[in-house]
Design a binder for these strands. Structure first.
Length: 552
DNA sequence: CTGGGGAAGGGGCCC
DNA sequence: CGGGCCCCTTCCCCA
């Protein structure tokens, strides 16, 4: 942020899209503000036409021209309430597509994938259709999925899987009897490429979950995950891909191919903008951050990225670096685990993981500590262990200055509330000057004498505010006249900071503003297009940079 | 809450 | 170019 920009500040809200979606989904489930009801074979799905128009080409066209579809209702116009009968889409598939629209996660049984594909094609939800096609294309030749398995074993597994699906279907069917299928009503909008309905054995649309059914805990737990980079972590961070458990396939939106642009968040658009085979030279947002973590190491540390024919995953569109890495990546989508431990039967997606696993059976611990008898399975375990010997704790919490030997422990610490609980007593670990910096420059107290600061009961809190503000991604809203707002990217951090730093709670708005200014300076390097980085260990460095700037 | 072990996924290097 | 091997990061789980 420079003063020459007329006070304009770019204020990213990385979680806004997911929170918005989550809120809309809550409204949908509560039936609030729903102005469109989709029906399928007796099941009713209240929804929002704006959301449907955003995800579905069909609804976009429908609401744009109000023709071609069977829209009935008190007021069929744009502002009215409509009922759209979609008997051509199986209720279960429609439910899944609605879930996708509101959660960016597609949760379907593999047995129902064809229904979902058909529904996605009919409704013009291209990314879902592409994903279904990609999966079906692989599952169509199921032998390819398990190339390393014994054929008979494969066949038996296929049978058991199908049986399992049938059992599940029967169970649900009996629990939720539905009206019999009706004639399709969406004929005029049948996609040209739509395959003729394949009456698969389990395609009976009667076994759907009614929309009025409360979300299962399994579904529910997905939603909060959307808060983190859209994935989550119900979804694992690094593009964990789908999971295929008991025939149920779940995709996060990260994995859905070619999402329509109007559905893409900024980050995703950036990724999509890379195009096929395009490798961003310096993409620093969202997924690129995650996948580029090692690359970032390479940029600063020893390894440098070698141009190695990056390939794009047809399912999630992710760029996979390294020759021969795409098949490995694809197994994260298919769930294929071709490498089985001969000792315990546990299966792995990768040979090297199996190899490491085998060390547990062989007792091999190839990484001995030179300082003690400890031996380790993994090199990084040894590395962690060595830091205990050396006492090195390079990862320090910028809030409470507690140091950790492992970065993930610092991250966990920061996600919790422990550092906030001790904030009022926290002092920097480094030399005496550091503490003064926190209270002076760090607190924004330049201009306030230490005595003045000591009179502020919340002064320690504001020391932490500077730490918050030095974080990349922390943004400031306001004009410096006391009406500023502080917003932090992290859920817990934001809430905590808003609670602590709300202007109405600060007896000295000027002090707050100086703090904000300091934080703004601290984030200068983090703005300019770069998104917040999850590398918390850098916060401290940036905090130090701020202090150094102040000292200059 | 923290320390430690382990799993999972991605990237780099090498053959 | 594919695959093996290794390292790294992130996350989950347990004590």
């Amino acid at each position: 942020m420079s003063p020459g920009e007329d006070g304009l500040i770019g204020i990213p809200f990385p979680e806004h899209s997911s929170e918005l979606l989550s809120c809309l989904n809550a409204q949908r489930r509560a039936g609030l503000l729903c102005d469109l009801t989709l029906t399928s074979r007796g099941a009713r799905y209240p929804t929002h036409r704006s959301v449907m128009a955003a995800v579905s080409l069909y609804f976009r066209q429908l609401f744009g021209a109000e023709e071609g579809g069977e829209v009935r209702g008190e007021a069929g116009g744009v502002g009215g309430f409509s009922v759209c009968q979609l008997d051509c889409v199986a209720p279960e598939a429609l439910d899944a597509l609605l879930e996708f629209a509101y959660t960016a996660t597609l949760t379907i049984r593999s047995s129902g994938m064809r229904d979902v594909l058909r529904g996605a094609q009919l409704l013009g939800i291209k990314c879902v259709a592409d994903a279904c096609r990609a999966i079906l294309g692989e599952t169509a030749g199921e032998g390819e999925l398990e190339p390393r398995e014994d054929r008979s074993q494969t066949e038996s597994k296929k049978c058991s899987r199908r049986k399992k699906d049938r059992r599940r279907v029967t169970k649900v069917e009996s629990a939720h009897p539905q009206a019999p299928p009706q004639q399709l009503n969406l004929n005029t909008h049948q996609h040209p490429s739509t395959p003729s309905p394949q009456p698969s054995p389990v395609q009976d649309g009667a076994h759907c979950r009614p929309c009025t059914q409360p979300p299962s805990p399994e579904q529910e737990e997905l939603h909060p995950s959307l808060g983190q980079n859209g994935d989550r972590k119900g979804c694992r961070g690094t593009g964990s891909g789908n999971t295929s458990i008991n025939g149920e396939v779940r995709w996060t939106r990260d994995l859905l191919p070619a999402a329509s642009n109007d559905m893409l968040s900024e980050d995703e658009e950036e990724m999509a903008g890379m195009g096929n085979g395009g490798v961003p030279s310096s993409v620093s947002t969202g997924l690129a951050d995650r996948q580029g973590a090692a690359g970032a190491v390479g940029a600063t540390g020893g390894r440098k990225r070698k141009s190695q024919t990056p390939q794009q995953c047809p399912v999630c569109q992710k760029i996979i670096h390294g020759a021969g890495k795409l098949p490995r990546h694809m197994r994260t989508h298919t769930g294929e685990k071709p490498f089985q431990c001969t000792a315990c039967g546990v299966r792995f997606t990768r040979n090297d993981k199996l190899k490491i696993h085998m060390r547990k059976h062989t007792g091999e611990r190839p990484y001995p500590c030179p300082h003690c008898p400890a031996r380790f399975l993994h090199s990084y375990d040894l590395k962690n262990h060595l830091s205990l010997h050396s006492g090195a704790r390079p990862f320090e919490c910028p809030l409470c200055h507690k140091a950790f030997a492992r970065e993930d422990h610092l991250q966990r610490h920061r996600k919790g509330l422990s550092c906030l609980e001790v904030r009022t007593r926290a002092r920097p670990r480094r030399g005496p000057g550091h503490g003064e910096e926190s209270r002076g420059a760090g607190v924004g107290g330049r201009g306030h004498s230490p005595d003045q600061l000591d009179t502020l009961e919340n002064v320690a809190l504001q020391a932490h505010s500077s730490a918050f503000l030095s974080r990349p991604g922390v943004v400031i809203h306001g004009d410096g006249q006391g009406a500023s707002q502080l917003v932090l990217p992290g859920e817990a951090d934001r809430d905590g900071a808003l609670a602590l730093l709300g202007p109405h709670r600060l007896p000295y708005p000027g002090l707050l503003w100086r703090t904000l200014q300091l934080g703004a300076r601290g984030m200068e390097g983090a703005t300019g297009g770069d998104s917040p980085t999850p590398q918390h260990a850098r916060w401290e460095e940036e905090e130090e940079e701020v202090v150094e700037e102040e000292e200059e």
